[in-house]
């Protein structure tokens, strides 16, 4: 039997977008190290429902770190203290019995708060709509080697393609910049032959949309890379800038 833990949570509660919000203390007894952090919130919610209180609203879907639905600040760090781990995959073994943990929503003006820990990240969808796609039908998976892609480019594109669009980069960035997300999408497509055709138009349109959504500028703090559940490198931001300059000058 796993050891029982008691965890003290301090969670941001806000009934709606315009309602006042505040941090509320909860204690969850009976947690164990095998639980994910979201399962801990599930346990808390069961207790709250039992007591006739409003459960804590938070987003999640796959709970296996691949969909990008989940995301909260755990103890001041987006997705919590474990590197390259979405909060749905963050296990309670990362904490100790008796720990006090502050849980807050991802904050950015471009991510308006919906309720409690749920924020509206459709700004990301609009950045993708601005150009994060390939307009032509590229058919099914091509035969191996029919379309030459160097190993380096394939590897790098794959690294950027792992972005799940969770928004942790924005939440953790001191400037609330969406550069890592936008750059990962731009770089992923620009590196591959199918995506390179529209690379110029794409980079200009996506950067413009990113700016219009009200995200901040990048100051190269690299905090985004540190909290990214997929560990996406800021090298993609450098590539985005290169692509942008190329698009404007050439």
């Amino acid at each position: 039997m796993a050891e029982q833990m008691t965890i003290h949570l301090r969670i941001w509660r806000q009934a709606g977008p315009d309602a006042p919000g505040r941090l509320v203390d909860y204690t969850v007894a009976g947690a164990n190290e095998h639980m994910s952090f979201l399962e801990l919130l599930d346990v808390l919610n069961e207790q709250l429902v039992h007591r006739g209180e409003e459960p804590v609203a938070f987003d999640s879907d796959c709970r296996e770190g691949i969909c990008g639905s989940c995301g909260v600040l755990v103890g001041g760090i987006a997705h919590g203290p474990q590197r390259r781990t979405a909060v749905c995959q963050l296990h309670m073994r990362s904490f100790k019995d008796g720990d006090r943990i502050v849980v807050e929503p991802f904050r950015a003006r471009a991510f308006p708060l919906v309720k409690d820990l749920v924020v509206d990240r459709s700004a990301f969808d609009r950045i993708i709509s601005a150009g994060g796609f390939i307009s032509t039908t590229t058919g099914g998976a091509p035969d191996a080697n029919a379309l030459p892609v160097s190993k380096d480019a394939a590897d790098e594109a794959m690294d950027y393609a792992t972005c799940i669009g969770c928004g942790a980069c924005v939440a953790a960035c001191p400037n609330a910049s969406a550069s890592l997300f936008t750059a990962a999408k731009i770089s992923h497509l620009a590196l591959l032959p199918q995506g390179s055709v529209e690379a110029s138009r794409r980079v200009v349109a996506m950067v413009r949309q990113m700016s219009e959504e009200g995200f901040g500028d990048c100051s190269n703090h690299t905090e985004c890379e540190a909290v990214c559940p997929k560990g996406i490198s800021i090298a993609c931001i450098a590539r985005m800038r290169r692509e942008y300059v190329k698009a404007v000058l050439c």
Binding site: G76, N175, A176, G214, G216, E223, A226
Partner: peptide, 13 residues
Amino acid sequence: RARGGHYARYKTA
């Protein structure tokens, strides 16, 4: 402007 609201607790990862 972009942050909109403060974190009660924030630290670098």
